[in-house]
Amino acid sequence: MGAGIVGLATAYELQRQGMQVTVVDQARPGAGASGGNGAQLSYSYVQPLADSGIWAQLPKLLLSPDSPLKLRPRWDPHQWRWGLDFLRACNRRASERGTATLLALAARSRQGFERMLAAERLECDFSRTGKLVLYATQASLDDARRQLELQRAWGCEQEAVTPARCVEIEPALAHYAAQIAGAIHTPSECAADCLQVCQGLHALLQARGVRFVLGTRITAVTRSAGRIVAAQTDAGAIEADAFVLALGSSSHALARTLGFALPVYPLKGYSITFDAAAGPGAAPRVSVTDAARKVVFARLGRRMRVAGMAELVGYGMDIPQARIDSLCAATRALFPHSGMGRDLQPWAGLRPATPTGLPVVGRHARAPANLLLNTGHGALGFTLAFGTAAAVAEALAG
């Protein structure tokens, strides 16, 4: 249930292991949070959003219209419960434990994704040009150095670099070097077009006999003796021996109909995509993250993807012009010669997030026995998809 990158990666892994698979979704493959995401495969940048540093930012989160992180309370008990659980997770111990878990899962996911790319040769503008995370102040850079030392113990190969070294790594930053205190460089980080991956997986899985029921809403689930018998949809009942819930931010609603709660709530994000300037040093080829603005820049072949924001504001899919203007302002500040024009292809997506930042994978004590979960990846859906898919396949095989 779900045809985003997480659902499709799961379908790929299950079909690869010889299972007969049906994928059902009310939209086309990759149309949800996968379609216009930040495009970065951030295998070494997985620190949960819930961190002890959030406490000092709370006034800005609640009040500032320009904050890249935004919280707007609604009359929604699920949002309040999620928010309180998030604040409880905002401590150093939980953040370090979550980082360790996510790094291990990201390493496994990298192996699965790159094995799939080598085997299937999907066209997805894949690149392995590394990533620079820029810090505007010495204090924020010092915090990043401490995180670097923590992650180094778990096998991450990263280094702190000076502004001058940033320009050597990515010449398009020459205009902006005076505005940063330094950066963390990870040479092994990658980028790819997630929508193209979804479309490629859809085509090859369909050719291998996977059944796709698209444009179809799941309306109910039929149960018997503690198990799911069928998913009821607009196109009729879909029977199966096992079901995988990978509906992203909609997972909570379906779980509620089955009598259990999932701590998954949408974190809304935005992106723009435009044709990059061709001149040397005009548009970046290395992936770049502006830590202060919470904006990422990723090269996708001849295009640039600029993405950011994390809003806890409900399920609306509107795209406020102010958010697109903010992404454009960040692009002009860092890369004034990148080629950004009028055709920006603005996009919004709802990332399915848990309070701790850890996805919900496998069986649930209160769920039907033949239901497996694969949801709650937050901003790391593309990064973690093939790792959690492997975990679900193992759980089913076991």
Rank of each mutant, 00 (worst) to 15 (best):
I5K: 04
I5Y: 14
V6P: 10
A9W: 07
A9D: 12
Q17T: 14
Q20Y: 05
D25Q: 09
P29S: 03
P29I: 13
G30M: 08
G32N: 05
G32V: 07
Y43A: 03
V46Q: 03
Q47L: 08
P48R: 02
D51R: 14
Q57C: 03
L62K: 04
S64T: 07
D66S: 13
L69A: 05
P77L: 06
Q79N: 10
W80V: 04
R81G: 12
R81D: 14
W82G: 10
L84T: 15
D85C: 09
F86K: 06
C90D: 13
S95W: 11
R110P: 09
Q111M: 01
R115L: 07
E120Y: 00
R121M: 02
F126Y: 15
T137P: 13
L141P: 08
D143P: 10
A144R: 03
A144Q: 11
R146H: 14
Q147M: 12
Q147D: 12
E149R: 09
E149H: 07
Q151M: 05
G155N: 07
E159F: 01
A160T: 08
P163K: 02
E170Q: 03
A174I: 10
Y176T: 01
G182M: 08
T186G: 06
P187I: 00
S188V: 09
E189V: 02
C194M: 07
L195R: 15
Q196Y: 11
L201T: 05
H202P: 06
T216L: 07
I218K: 04
A220Y: 06
A220K: 09
A225Y: 02
G226A: 01
R227Y: 04
I228N: 11
A230V: 11
A230N: 13
A231V: 15
Q232H: 15
E239A: 11
A240E: 12
A240F: 13
S250H: 15
A261T: 15
Y265D: 04
P266V: 00
L267V: 11
I272M: 12
T273F: 08
P280T: 04
A283T: 13
P284N: 10
K294E: 08
F297Q: 14
F297G: 09
L300S: 12
L312M: 05
I319P: 12
I319A: 09
P320L: 05
R323Y: 02
R323G: 04
D325M: 07
C328G: 11
C328A: 15
H337N: 13
M340C: 12
G341Q: 12
R342P: 09
R342L: 10
D343K: 03
P346R: 08
T354I: 04
G357V: 00
A365C: 07
L372C: 11
L372K: 08
T375R: 00
H377A: 01
A379S: 08
G381Y: 06
T383N: 04
L384S: 05
T388M: 08
A390H: 10
A390F: 00
E394F: 05
A397F: 07
G398Q: 13
